[in-house]
């Protein structure tokens, strides 16, 4: 094994990160699915659903759902990063809501770690609907790296 820990193996790392999402009850309850997972970043999508609406006037999904999606996607990006975190927790997360997500459309989030230290990962994330040229929301967050 040359003294390499399991976390150094990319395949193993991908498996750990994928499980991290699949065993999260809240991610399942919201209907999230993991579309891409790589050391460079992650993508998670969430289909529109009537019971997740925040503005009954327009049918626009609630900002809290976008927060949950961004937080999960960012956490997954931390887990998939070569830093090899065994677990992670959000320290802070700021979300800019740039426009209302179009009712009925799936929301896709993308996250990447733009800087990682021994104990903290700095993450950026975006959320898009079908019109990918105009993001719905952007987020920046700091996450712990548990070793």
């Amino acid at each position: 094994m040359n003294g390499a820990s399991p976390e150094d193996d990319p395949e193993q790392r991908r498996r750990i990160a994928r499980q991290f999402i699949e065993i999260i009850p809240h991610a399942r309850a919201l209907g999230m699915s993991l579309d891409k997972l790589s050391p460079e970043g992650t993508e998670i999508s969430l289909p529109w659903r009537e019971d997740l609406v925040g503005d009954p006037d327009s049918g626009v999904i609630h900002g809290g759902v976008i927060s949950a999606l961004m937080d999960t996607c960012s956490g997954a990006a931390v887990m998939a990063h070569p830093a090899g975190a065994r677990s992670t927790a959000t320290i802070d997360l700021r979300i800019d809501y740039m426009r209302a997500a179009t009712p009925g459309q799936t929301i896709r989030a993308r996250a990447e770690c733009y800087h990682v230290t021994r104990s903290v990962a700095f993450v950026r994330a975006w959320a898009m609907d079908d019109d990918e040229s105009r993001p719905v929301a952007a987020a920046t967050g700091a996450f712990t790296i548990e070793r």
Binding site: I24, P25, H26, A27, R28, A68, M70, T90
Partner: peptide, 24 residues
């Protein structure tokens, strides 16, 4: 509620739930 869990090992409420609760 079970569906609010983000980390089943601890267990802990999902950070997104916390954010949503505060925003609501």
């Amino acid at each position: 509620d079970e569906k609010l869990i983000g980390n089943p090992m601890l267990p802990a409420i999902h950070g997104g739930v916390t954010a949503a609760f505060l925003e609501v």
